[in-house]
């Protein structure tokens, strides 16, 4: 596997922070929003009215360890 790379002393190259920053911010927010909808929407806080999202993902919310009920 490492034989296709530049040799035993090859160093991993970090991705520059300037390239990373927009992804970290927007990607990070989007991912957290997804987790929020499964974990906490219509529980402690609510963006959408009603209880449908909460009830729909209810078993997942409990089994993934989020507080519920």
């Amino acid at each position: 596997m490492s034989d296709i790379h530049a040799g035993p002393a090859a160093q991993p190259v970090p991705i520059p922070v300037r390239t990373l920053a927009p992804w970290l911010i927007f990607g990070g927010l989007m991912m957290m929003l997804m987790i929020y909808f499964v974990g906490a929407e219509e529980g402690a806080t609510s963006i959408i009215k009603g209880m449908y999202v909460h009830e729909y993902v209810h078993d997942g919310r409990h089994l993934l360890g989020f507080p519920c009920h």
Binding site: M34, I35, V57, G60
Partner: peptide, 11 residues
């Protein structure tokens, strides 16, 4: 519902 919840969380 469980499938959706687990997959969205995991993704």
């Amino acid at each position: 519902g469980l499938l959706t919840g687990v997959i969205v969380y995991s993704a």
